[in-house]
């Protein structure tokens, strides 16, 4: 992964990226490539900065070092207008859905179309109904976001994310907190949208089972480093203890169960201090 030139077919390439929050290093010199037309998953324990990585790719955060290139453009060197133009071609599905709570489902999906195009209302109606049909929620168009279940909210947000026919969708923990049925429905949707619309998908997730079902290529991140990467089949068979711990869900291993602390016995015996 140290080759500096990205492979020809990668839509997004991250090079020697470092990012810190205060004194804490979130990423330490990582490089990743996301191939066009494929579903690439970034997996790792919670708190490893997977969402941060998506925000770096989307240009919402600036890296300490390194670069992120999306479709040949260095995201962090773009001017504001250029960045916004790039973002029109990127859909992002937030963990919470991030639907606008003062609008109903229909208006939420129509929102990007109304903001960025000059289409007539009848054209917008056709497009919105098509997008809602794609996620199976055409019948829910009059509901308000607070009337939706978590899974429905995410599917609506997905319909909104594809409203402008993007080239790429970033998924932030799409499966978290979903019941098995909506998890399956979402996994199926992500896969079929990717294939029928010719998208490139980046999924950040710690749900091993669903992610392995749909991903073409996987990166496993832990403590700011890439601890393993490969095709889904290769990851399944990997001998790396990091990956094995993550895949099998063992409580202790290379990722320790305990948050760093001083010695337990010493800590119990040291009296006089409150903490």
């Amino acid at each position: 992964m140290d080759n500096s030139a990205p492979p020809l077919n990668s839509l997004v390439s991250v090079r020697h990226l470092s990012f810190s929050r205060g004194d804490k290093k979130i990423f330490d010199d990582i490089s990743l490539d996301f191939e066009r037309g494929k579903i690439t998953a970034i997996m790792g324990p919670s708190g490893t900065g997977k969402t941060t990585l998506l925000k770096l790719i989307g240009g919402q955060l600036h890296p300490g070092q390194g670069s992120v290139t999306v479709d040949g453009q260095n995201v962090h060197l773009l001017r504001r207008a250029e960045l916004y133009n790039l973002r029109k071609r990127i859909g992002m599905l937030f963990q919470s859905g991030a639907l606008l709570t003062d609008m109903n489902v229909y208006d939420n999906v129509a929102f990007p179309l109304r903001e960025h195009t000059h289409l007539s209302e009848s054209m917008i109606r056709t497009l919105v109904l098509m997008k809602l049909q794609a996620v199976g929620l055409r019948g829910a168009r009059k509901l308000m976001p607070n009337e939706l279940s978590g899974g429905m909210a995410r599917r609506i947000a997905l319909a909104r994310a594809i409203a402008l026919d993007p080239m790429m969708i970033l998924y932030d923990e799409p499966f978290t907190g979903q019941d098995p049925i909506s998890m399956g429905a979402l996994a199926h949707l992500i896969k079929s949208l990717n294939n029928t619309l010719g998208l490139t998908s980046i999924i950040v997730s710690h749900d091993v089972h669903e992610t392995l079902l749909i991903a073409d290529y996987i990166y496993v991140i832990s403590e700011g480093k890439i601890v393993g990467h490969g095709t889904t089949a290769a990851i399944r068979q990997s001998a790396s203890p990091w990956i094995q711990q993550f895949m099998t869900g063992a409580a202790d291993g290379p990722v320790p169960f305990h948050y760093p602390a001083k010695d337990y016995i010493d800590d119990l015996l040291s009296s006089g201090k409150r903490y």
Partner: peptide, 21 residues
């Protein structure tokens, strides 16, 4: 609350400037 529920962030990613909108 819009910030807490990622609505502002979501708008930015949809290339809509929350300062203006």
């Amino acid at each position: 609350l819009m910030k807490a529920t990622e609505q502002l962030s979501g708008m930015e990613m949809m290339a809509v400037d929350p300062m203006k909108r």
